[in-house]
Design a protein around this nucleic acid. Structure first.
Lengths: 203, 203
DNA sequence: TTGCCGGTGGCACTGGGTGTCACCTACGGT
DNA sequence: ACCGTAGGTGACACCCAGTGCCACCGGCAA
């Protein structure tokens, strides 16, 4: 459409379309609610056909998640590269903080995305499927480090409860508005790793 | 259909129909997979119409969960009745164990149900919506006990991570076949409450 | 008998998701 | 310049979950 467009290779055009879909979906879902928006409306807003929408996003809910697969891969890489002498829980904690260390420019979109995911029931449900991938990666890391099978108690429990901590940190970050995402993660992980010390303080 | 049926009041007939739907759904989903079974097939197997199915279960996934609302209510009651001098985490732990103390006769159906929920992606996603109710109840209890708002870090974190522990215990119970559900819950909660002590043991 | 009422089934409709095909465009080979 | 191919796209038809509406049928009270 413009001078820039002319020089675009196919991959670039694809990426640009993907971004348009994502932005259209986030805006429409935020304005009208996830259920109230039709895929036809998202497709129209993104300037593509309904059929093409499903070639980019396998599900209506997928449109909200963007490049989440890349996050899981990055998390996996960080865990694999963690220092061998670092305590297991600390390595998981550090990887979660690092993978969620967004540039300031990305924070508004992240807020929009997470608000939708934590607010809209259908998206909250769908999130479980995405988080299951994260859990597998974390459980595999814990299992490797402790020398047990990945489907035993401790790896699974560490994976699910650290993810619960991360999700809680996101909720806190969304609701507060003041606190940093990193600070929220820090608080949540400290509570978890120490067995909820603040519950033992005088009421 | 039989002599017993003649004496049934409306409420009894409704309960009997509900049970037939649940059993038909569990069996069909187990045999052919959740996605592969149509609601028409479940309705036919239960001897009702498709439209009536939706009067008993608001969702295809709901057919698997049975009387789960009652469990949440019971959990809430147990937490409210917990001794005031009992540590908060211990009261949550005890309530989870008690609400999951099934009669031996109910265990096969529970196994079938939980296997589906933890195995089928659509049901796993849906479970997040059911568990959100549990989390609210637990968070409210922790908040009441600690004198903070229910939507702050500690209540939310305790709720999500204890539920993560319970879910992990269910996974363990399903996969193992030997271990008791109560024993699995015990192991998971002990790990969680002590900050994952087994991670500090020699490799 | 009449009128009401709760549960049921049938029907039509919306909307998410998939399979299929025809088209078009960019590219490499001749 | 021509042709063939391959990948992205749009249009269409289809399946199925879920909803609204109405007609029916049973029991029950006046």
């Amino acid at each position: 459409m413009e001078a820039v467009t002319e020089t675009m290779v196919a991959a670039d055009a694809r990426e640009e379309t993907r971004a348009r879909i994502e932005q259209a979906a986030l805006d429409l879902f935020t304005a009208q609610g996830f259920e109230a928006v039709t895929i036809d409306e998202v497709a129209d807003a993104a300037g593509i056909s309904r059929r093409t929408f499903f070639r980019y996003c396998s599900t209506k809910a997928d449109a909200v998640w963007g490049q989440f697969d890349g996050h899981v891969v990055r998390l996996e890489g960080m865990l694999a590269a963690a220092a061998a002498d670092q305590p297991v829980l600390a390595s998981v904690y550090a990887a979660y903080v690092e993978v969620n260390d967004y540039a300031a420019a990305d924070l508004p979109m992240l807020r929009q995305r997470m608000r939708l995911i934590l607010t809209e029931p259908a998206l909250l449900a769908h999130s479980q499927l995405r988080y299951a991938d994260v859990d597998r990666v974390v459980a595999a890391h814990v299992a490797r480090r402790t020398g047990v099978a990945p489907d035993t108690l401790v790896p699974r429990l560490v994976a699910t409860s650290t993810r619960a901590a991360a999700t809680t940190a996101f909720e806190l970050w969304l609701a507060d508005g003041e606190i940093t995402l990193g600070a929220a993660l820090h608080q949540a992980f400290d509570e978890l790793a120490a067995g909820f010390p603040s519950l033992r303080l005088p009421g």
